[in-house]
């Protein structure tokens, strides 16, 4: 596949999946965010001392409109960037995925693994919080924890993927199916260790627990959906692009012979 084709299908799949994520979040996750921000404003206004600005409702509405609109575009940008990583991982690993020759299935397998490594693992240790939870003072500390955990998960998976590939080459045909067990077990052990060793999120949850749990569940559903949509669209585009380039190559061969 040509570089430009590969870039195009990767970005297209990412942008579509990300935009869908932003749009669906408007309906599914936004009610929780709205509620959380109302509570946050209420807290701020009750603790406001004289002289502090209390949020003006009209300004507030305009600002929420901006945030919600931004979510769709931010979805597109996030989709483009996560899609880029996904495209690279797929291109490098598709030759090592055994059990199927179907690119659409392989695309979903890669999406599933990346969902586990890059979303589920960090979300189990540092679950997403709605607005109203989270102290601005600790943002850099919390970001460091989150990135560290993400990096442990991502780089362990990357290293183990190389190990898996080496083991696959070295193994005999009878044992190929069992090769996945060792890298998976090592990954599970590393993540369990990291889960126990890493410090917890320092911020107290001072919003109603129903709100926080509802937010976590709905956002987990939409992000999971994002990965599935990304895999489906990318797999379909990859096959389509291969089909077209094979056709062009075939025609070229006919003409030149």
């Amino acid at each position: 596949m040509k570089a430009i084709t590969f870039i195009a299908i990767t970005l297209l799949a990412g942008a579509i999946a990300g935009t869908i994520l932003g749009a669906i979040n408007q309906v599914v996750v936004e009610p929780y965010i709205d509620h959380a921000i109302e509570l946050e404003m209420l807290q701020q206004n009750t603790t406001a001392q004289s002289g502090q600005v209390i949020t003006n409702p009209a300004e507030f509405a305009a600002y929420r409109f901006w945030q919600k609109g931004g979510e769709i575009i931010a979805g597109t940008i996030l989709g483009l960037s996560i899609g880029s990583l996904y495209g690279i991982v797929f291109a490098y690993t598709r030759g090592s995925i055994s059990g199927t020759n179907n690119n659409k299935k392989k695309a979903l397998i890669v999406a599933g693994i990346m969902w586990l490594v890059l979303f589920l693992m960090p979300a189990l240790k540092y679950p997403p919080n709605p607005p109203a939870v989270g102290n601005p003072e600790t943002i850099y500390y919390r970001q460091s924890l989150y990135v560290a955990f993400l990096a442990i998960s991502g780089f362990s998976a990357l290293g183990l993927a190389f190990l898996y590939r080496k083991m696959m080459v070295a193994s005999s045909n009878n044992t190929k199916k069992k090769v996945i067990i060792i890298p998976s077990a090592v990954y599970a052990a590393i993540m369990a260790g990291a889960y126990l060793a890493m410090p917890a999120n320092p911020d107290p949850i001072n919003a109603p627990i129903d709100l926080v749990i509802g937010f976590r569940i709905t956002s987990a559903i939409t992000i999971s959906m994002f990965w599935a949509v990304l895999g489906v669209i990318f797999g379909a585009l990859w096959d389509k692009a291969n089909f077209i380039s094979n056709k062009i190559a075939a025609r070229h061969n006919c003409n030149s012979s």
Partner: peptide, 16 residues
Amino acid sequence: HEFYHDMRHAAGFPCH
């Protein structure tokens, strides 16, 4: 920041 705010929360990144 406001523009990305809601997606940052919804995608599970730490925020304010």
